[in-house]
Amino acid sequence: MNAAIIGQMAISGALMGLVYALIAYGFQLTYATSKSINFGQGELVMVSAFFSLTLTNLGLSQHWGLGLSYGLMVPGGLIFGAIMGLVVERAGVRLALEQKSEGWILLSIILGLFFFSAAENIWGRDDRPFPTPIPEEPFHVLGLAIGPREVAVAVGVLGIMGLIELLKRKTLLGKAFEAVSADRDAAELMGISATRTVMLSYGLSGSVAALAGILVSPITTVGPTMASAIILKAFSVAVVAGLDSGFGVVLVGMFLGALESLASFYLGSGWREAPGLVLLILALALRPTGVFGKATIRKV
């Protein structure tokens, strides 16, 4: 009995953990090209979810059915996320990187705050349901109840990560991406524009954030604060796994998801956030480059 409950909690937690993994993967994308991440990524998740909700509710669902309008909304949401990512890159990151300062940390926080306030006023402060054609009733495998929406999360997360990894490994553009990450100046000498590569990474990272929002909204509902807890755990996953291992974030994301679901069961739902935060501080203290990250050598 007890084992079944633990298994149940662990599995549904692990599936949710894939959302953290996806957002963390978005951090890795920008970190690879520019050694920077968007501290306002949570707001990007939230704003994109709201935008997608608006697209779904445009009235098309009455005429075309939910399935079709959902299908049309997803690309719209992804494009919106990409545009927001580009805005962050242009307004918050580029200048600081040119000046080799860490101003981008503060600026990306500030931009996030602006998006938050804008969303609050445009879409309201209330949480709203997100319609989806995917049913809610769980199906049973080996005695475990599994929600189709959670499966959709898993499929979406692994699908897009697979696609981007394919892009990175199989196309010349992907190799250029890695070249910028390995040696920005040398990449420039090959005719690869580092600025455009960084823009591309921020665009992709924005899309990834948008997809995370679209996938998670049917489960959590949409509201201005929907991502504030998720993003902290995504940070944890990114740091614990290291900022350069796509495989690592999936593992750590699922682990953390399972852990917190157990923590909220045994310690009370308020402590849900605690394992991620403790894990993050511990990981930073013990292995700052992450469990799956590469160690660096100090040079003078």
């Binding site: 920077s36 991440i37 501290f39 860490e102 940390i105 902290l232 940070f235 944890s236 740091v239 991620g276 935060l277 993050l280 501080i281 930073l284 700052p288």
Partner: peptide
């Protein structure tokens, strides 16, 4: 830098 900001945020 970013890692310090993340640790303090946590």
């Amino acid at each position: 830098g970013p890692q310090f900001a993340l640790a303090t945020l946590s």
